Amino acid sequence: MPPDASPSRHQRADGAFELAFGPSPRGTALRHLFQQAPLRILFPDPEPGEPPTAAILNCAGGLAGGDALRQSVRLEAGARATVCTAAAEKVYRSLGPDSRIETTLSLGAGAWLEWLPQETILFDGARLARGMRTVLEPGARLLAAEMLVFGRAARGERMAAGMVFDRWRLHGPEGLLWADALDLPDPGRLASPFGFAGAEALATLLLAAPGVEAHRDLLRGMPALAPGAMTLPRPGLLLARWLGRATEVRRAAGAAIAALRAAALEQPARLPRLWTT
């Protein structure tokens, strides 16, 4: 290499989107859209009687070390919307830097949002730093789910190296309602009997809505498709988690989402179409 030549640098993705919905005489309408490659937002026709659906698409096919995504969804008072991903997100093996995802959800008074991305698949050696911050105004409802798969389960790969730091913050009119973080600096803990006991996947589901006590009993009465548990961290907040084989965790989370859509959001008891196509 010539003395004045600098080492080559890897190209990094810096994707973003901003979505805003508001009420209109014909129902919820799109108010604002900004998108920056590699992120794109598609709007498939919703099923009859369902609110607008926004599909997040990563045109790069996945995230490499050093890539960053910024995601923002805002609902005006009374608006309703569903946001999903078009497919599972993939986080590839990193050469050192973290793959970063930051999400902000803002719900106006009486609005409700389904934040239902499909699973995030962590390749062996992936480094993911992800955060989600949600702000709810009075009367707002949120059904949110995230699923992590530790390795490419279909290939029998397990995540043996890398890092995961995944944090959630939920704010309401009276301040912080719930805070949680998964800090996994050493994927070796996945195999520990006092850690994840060899589980392939982890799914988290959060419902903020009135009457969640009855919804907890609903989930507890469903068939146990994967090892899991439900709790009420505080009034108006339901938390469910599943840990186990990737296919079983996805089925369990999917069944819970379908049941809660009907019970808490007055939607058909089925998964969004993007989950099944």
Rank of each mutant, 00 (worst) to 15 (best):
M1T: 15
P2Y: 13
P3L: 12
A5H: 10
A5I: 04
R9G: 11
A13W: 10
D14Q: 15
L19F: 06
L19D: 00
P25F: 01
P25C: 06
R26D: 15
G27I: 10
A29V: 12
R31L: 15
H32V: 07
F34S: 15
F34T: 13
A37R: 13
P38N: 13
L39H: 02
L42E: 14
F43G: 14
G49M: 02
E50M: 12
P52C: 13
T53Q: 13
I56Q: 08
N58E: 08
C59A: 15
G66T: 02
R70M: 02
R70H: 11
R70L: 13
R70Q: 12
L75F: 05
A77M: 05
G78F: 05
A79H: 04
R80L: 09
T82K: 00
C84N: 03
C84D: 12
E89L: 02
D98L: 12
E102T: 13
L105H: 01
L107K: 01
L107W: 01
G108C: 08
G108R: 03
G110E: 05
W112E: 07
W112A: 06
W115H: 00
L116W: 02
L116Q: 02
L122T: 04
D124H: 07
A126E: 06
R130D: 02
G139I: 08
M147N: 01
V149S: 02
F150M: 03
F150D: 03
F165L: 11
R169M: 09
L170N: 04
E174L: 08
L177V: 02
W178Y: 11
A181H: 03
A181F: 02
L182P: 00
P187Y: 00
P187M: 02
P187S: 07
L190V: 06
P193M: 02
E200V: 08
E200G: 13
T204G: 10
T204A: 14
T204N: 04
L207V: 06
P210N: 08
V212R: 04
A214T: 14
R220K: 12
M222G: 00
P223T: 06
A224T: 09
L225D: 07
M230V: 15
M230C: 14
P233A: 06
P235E: 13
P235T: 10
P235Y: 05
L238C: 06
L238Y: 04
A240D: 07
R245M: 07
A246H: 07
E248M: 12
E248N: 14
R251F: 04
A262G: 11
A262K: 14
A262H: 14
Q267D: 10
L271M: 09
P272M: 02
